[in-house]
Design a protein around this nucleic acid. Structure first.
Lengths: 183, 183
DNA sequence: TTGAAGTTTCAGAACCTTCTGAAACCTTGT
DNA sequence: ACAAGGTTTCAGAAGGTTCTGAAACTTCAA
């Protein structure tokens, strides 16, 4: 177990690094993708030390990565009777992973962004002058876009099915009067 | 032009920062989102110096941000007859922006990731032993997922319409014939 | 209770990214 | 050809993020 054949190890590292790149691209640390991949390919619950050995990481780094992966729900801790160490395994349901991550990420920002855009629109609504009118119009458009995008993503996650047909229209429609609430 | 009312400026900064956060969340620098937002809200082609003043950025930083935004096709340079300076305006077609950015981003990684995963699978295909069999199975699943995701995103961008109904199934189908081994 | 095995935490080191400020580089008018 | 206005570039500074290594902590067994 602690000595995978050199070939298998090489393949694992290759795949791990590729997935690391994707994952980094979507805003996570490379190492999270690498650790997950090694667990996923291994298919067998694996102790932390093994991961550190394969990926040449310190025990501390492995621990931190595993903690974060568990927070995202993409790695599980497995208890083995009679074993002192903990074992870890990758979540294999890709959909579960995607929806969980999307969900959490969206929730983090959605509220504050909406709030700030609404506040900005309110200020502009109170302001005077041609400049303010134009800015208000644009701010409302921005707000509308953010709301549409959030709703669409949300629907996608909830149903695994979404029709984006009107999405394109909604986000590029010529600006008319997108009235939101008044101040 | 160089003296927006304090209220309007405040609203602009509020919105700019909110969009900056979203944009950062999707893997770009905050400042790109802020600059774009100021241009978008201003609605009028704006010289670089104005942006620096409003967002308190050095001329260098403004220049770099504008260059990058133009590379992504979300900001345009506008020439004004009789004006020595250059003016900039935001692309207002959200869909254009989204598709362009997605497109470029995907293209960047898609190839190399696919290649590396295929290489890994090839190595595992040559390797012997139960471990290699399991790893190969998983690597293929990973590859299948990446391909499906890429195709789906691609279709989405090309048509503004995509049916994700089968997506969920494809990415979460149960792994056949891979049993967890006993400890 | 003590010690061994394993894990987590965290201060500082190493690394990476972004920004500043100044110089170099256009472009245009004289 | 030169100077002025404007923009770009880039070395180094500043700031931020991630990792290491060691200490602290936890758990289990004797």
């Amino acid at each position: 177990m602690t000595s995978p054949s050199p070939d298998i190890l090489r393949a694992e590292l290759l795949a791990a690094d590729a997935i690391g790149d994707i994952i980094e691209h979507w805003g996570f640390r490379k190492v999270l993708g690498r650790v997950w991949t090694v667990l996923f390919l291994g298919a067998t619950p694996t102790p932390a030390a093994d991961i550190g050995e394969r990926l040449q990481m310190s025990a501390g780094a492995v621990s931190m990565a595993l903690t974060e992966l568990q927070r995202w729900g993409v790695v599980r801790r497995v208890w083995r009777p009679g074993e002192r160490r903990e074992f870890f395994e990758a979540e294999t349901d890709f959909w579960k992973m995607i929806s969980k991550v999307f969900d959490e990420r969206e929730r983090l920002l959605a509220g504050s962004v909406r709030q700030r855009l609404e506040e900005a629109a309110a200020i502009l609504g109170r302001a005077r002058g041609a400049e303010a009118v134009v800015a208000l119009d644009r701010a409302n458009r921005l707000l509308a876009f953010v709301l549409v995008a959030q709703t669409a993503l949300d629907g996608f996650i909830k149903s695994r099915r979404v029709d984006f047909t009107r999405f394109g229209d909604l986000v590029s429609f010529p600006l008319r009067s997108v009235q939101r609430r008044k101040a």
